[in-house]
């Protein structure tokens, strides 16, 4: 493959990936506000992870603790 066609491919790759990322970014913004409006999820409450961070505080969203960690206790 010669230099010109490599460059052309690169240019196409660049354009499409950039457009792809822009779409992702805007749909992310949309998602952030939409999910809050629908009451599905409140992003702002994640700030509490810093404010209530004692080890015995209730997690904002609890996660099942893997077995290995439980064993250590």
């Amino acid at each position: 493959m010669n230099m010109e066609s490599i460059r052309e491919l690169q240019a196409y790759g660049y354009i499409f990936f950039t457009i792809f990322l822009v779409i992702i970014l805007y749909s992310y913004i949309y998602h952030l506000y939409k999910s809050e409006k629908d009451g599905k999820r409140n992003y702002e409450k994640y700030s509490d992870m810093a404010l209530h961070d004692n080890i015995d505080d209730v997690p904002v969203e609890k996660r099942e603790i893997p077995l290995s960690a439980e064993k250590e206790k």
């Binding site: 990322l21 702002e44 404010l51």
Partner: peptide, 27 residues
């Protein structure tokens, strides 16, 4: 993002803005 809210007892002004600027900065 951890120490300022924690020290001042204020939640981050906009958590959404914080993650948007994260992706912006990365890119």
């Amino acid at each position: 993002y951890y120490f300022l809210p924690k020290e001042s007892a204020q939640p981050i002004f906009s958590y959404k803005l914080s993650i948007l600027s994260f992706w912006g900065l990365m890119f």
